[in-house]
Design a protein around this nucleic acid. Structure first.
Length: 461
DNA sequence: TGAAATGTTGGGGCG
DNA sequence: ACGCCCCAACATTTC
């Protein structure tokens, strides 16, 4: 008897899974397969990889509860599939389509050798679908989002199947190494659904303002779960549409709409990477590819470690280092700081974020960095420079966030918290925080920043 | 999904 | 009553 492979890549879930749904339609035994591709594995493992392994463990349990077994194999996907096709009779392979340059190339090679059916599911719309009237891709967000909203949504909603027909012959599977759970992001499909629910329950209605507050839990924190598909974007989007129906005030409606916009930003950057894969190597705009960056190695290091002397920057970086996640407002602040205040090449920041972020996704991460640096699609103008002091006063108005991540500033009075270098010597002593010893002097003199950025960007034109 | 500089307006104090 | 100045609040411009 033949079987069907459900090749799992970025869709580690049972509920509302279009690829699994398609595989079940065939009415043959299903082989749930995950391939550990050495090209995508890191040593030592990043927090993202730990999250992935945790999620695989969880999926393994969920699949076992359906009377089937998740098969994990290690190696080049072509070779792994070749081996499987020799071990057992396989009718076809179903997988959710992935649009990163590496995934596209990999799947193209697999398709030349095997019957691989790619199903749309990573995004609501295929990147080929939302195009300008002349057939070329959008490079500006607003018209993209308008058009995106016009397209009818293909809604395949499938609840968790209650049975997964299994092959009569057991297939061998790799034992996953034990990995400790990430405290901030327990990796299971159930957790993803819980997070969506609690977000839709209240925070989404204040999202328009709440999303900016560093000291509040105003965001969904779904990004790692969407990154690996522990929840479906369709489920998430439908939840938001339902919230839109129940929104009472215009403010609440605005909150929901703002969040939906963020989901569209996600698809916008996936689309940009799909149509312009070169953005992973260079700035989207040719005239922004030769900026004379300052690129100081010790400044980069201070930024990475959260030791720049600017509290909000350091707090955000330490949140990233410790949890593998950073608030979106924080990402903008620290990215602006690296690329503008330090005038450091955005690609170095992009790389560091990819190393550290549990939700690190090449499309969104690249898009965000090019946006902040002012070198990419629909980018912030290059002269838009975030003032870390103003930003922290605005979005961490009580200083709760700074104190949480910078224990050395715990006792610093609020009046000096945002600019600790202004503390008189006696106050430094009283608050057990000697500037230059317990907490660094600010590394860059912000009064030179704007001129330096303006010069660098003008030279590059 | 800036920030700072510059411009405009309007209310109140005051001679 | 009126003009003048000051200045905060808001709007516009500039990078």
């Amino acid at each position: 008897m033949k079987s069907v492979i459900w090749w799992i890549r970025r869709d580690l879930r049972l509920q509302n899974n279009p690829a699994l749904h398609a595989a079940l339609q065939i009415k043959l035994p299903v082989i749930p397969l995950f391939i550990l591709d050495p090209k995508l594995l890191e040593n030592p493992p990043s927090q993202r990889q730990v999250f992935l392994f945790n999620a695989l463990h969880s999926l393994q349990n969920d699949i076992a509860n359906l009377g089937n077994a998740l098969i994990i194999r290690k190696g080049n996907p072509l070779q792994v599939l070749h081996q499987l096709f020799q071990e057992t009779e396989i009718e076809t392979i179903f997988a959710e389509e992935d649009y990163s340059p590496y995934a596209l190339q990999r799947d193209q090679l697999v398709q030349q050798a095997f019957p691989l059916h790619l199903i749309v599911g990573l995004t609501i719309h295929h990147p080929q679908q939302v195009l300008k009237s002349d057939g070329t891709p959008y490079t500006v967000f607003t018209p993209f989002s308008k058009n995106w909203k016009l397209f009818p949504k293909n809604r395949i909603y499938t609840s968790k199947p209650d049975h997964l027909p299994t092959t009569p012959m057991p297939l061998s599977s790799l034992e996953l190494p034990e990995s400790t759970p990430l405290t901030s992001f327990p990796a299971s499909e159930k957790e993803a659904n819980l997070r969506l629910h609690s977000f839709l329950n209240a925070p989404i209605f204040q999202y328009a303002t709440g999303r900016n507050m560093l000291d509040q839990e105003g965001t969904s924190t779904l990004s790692p779960y969407l990154r690996f598909g522990l929840i479906s974007i369709q489920t998430v989007y439908q939840g938001a549409l339902n919230a839109l129906q129940t929104a009472q005030t215009t403010e609440e409606k605005k909150g929901v709409e703002t969040w939906i916009n963020e989901l569209i930003w996600r698809e916008f950057y996936i689309s940009i990477l799909y149509h312009f894969p070169n953005v992973l190597k260079e700035a989207f705009y040719a005239h922004r590819r030769h900026i004379p960056w300052h690129n100081n190695a010790s400044e980069l290091k201070a930024w990475q470690q959260g030791l720049t002397g600017y509290p909000i920057v350091d707090a955000c970086m330490r949140q990233l280092n410790q949890t593998g996640w950073m608030h979106n407002r924080g990402r903008m602040i620290v990215a602006s700081f690296l690329t503008k205040d330090f005038l450091h090449n955005w690609q170095e920041g992009e790389r560091y974020f990819m190393q550290k972020l549990v939700d690190g996704d090449p499309a969104a991460n690249n898009g965000g960095w090019q946006w902040t640096a002012g070198v990419g699609t629909d980018a912030a103008p290059y002269f838009r420079i975030f003032n870390p002091i103003l930003q922290s006063k605005k979005f961490d108005s009580q200083g709760v966030f700074i104190r949480k991540w910078l224990p050395e500033l715990k006792d610093v009075p609020k009046a000096y918290l945002y600019e600790p270098w202004t503390m008189p010597a006696d106050v430094q002593e009283q608050s057990h925080c000697i500037i230059g010893k317990d907490y660094p002097q600010p590394i860059v003199d912000r009064s030179i920043v704007k001129d330096r950025v303006m010069n660098a960007f003008q030279v590059s034109q």
